[in-house]
Design a protein around this nucleic acid. Sequence first.
DNA 1: TGCCAGGCCCTCTTTAGGGCCTT
Length: 203
Amino acid sequence: MSMANTVIILDFETTGLSPDMGDRAIEIGAVCIENGEIKDHFQALMNPGRRIDSFIEGYTGITNKMLADAPPCEEVMLEFADFMGDYNLVAHNASFDKRFLDAELARISRPYSGKFACSMLVSRRIYQDAPNHKLGTLIKHANIPVDGVFHRALYDYQMTTKLWMAMLGNINQHYDIHDIPFNLLQKLAKTPKKHVRNFLQNW
DNA sequence: TGCCAGGCCCTCTTTAGGGCCTT
């Protein structure tokens, strides 16, 4: 198995926007993708040790009752740390998920060496004419079918996975780049939009 | 329902401000 071709796509639901302001993770959903195929997944609610407000209940679909029965953050994050290992990571607006991953893993003293790529930054370059680059909008823009009942807390990581696969397929198809390496996607996320075509054509 | 934070990105820019994304 090649580590370079394996990535973990993840999504956190949290009590708010900033771990520096005391916010905690309340759910983690993740998929392990190896050579473009889903190999494993991880999904768990976690109890942050205090009640969440009604906005977060409505926004995520996660209730205080659900969290009361969930194991504590520390227990879930230990299991997730084993799941993610040192693989590279993908998230939609990765700077957000990275802050929470760093904060939660620091609490249990679990360092990791995987690097992040951001599906939102890549989408701003691959789908430059999308109305906006919210996850739900991109799913519609790319004509990606969404199966099952939409429930944000449980399905965002699956939609991110479908979006990520669609963007890899787009690059593969339009630029004939096979076995797209992780560092291509990291560099693409920093490439000025007007230079994206040249960047990919000259890869 | 979001004022919080932070990185990206555009522009009436770089001696800055504000919108986009994430919960």
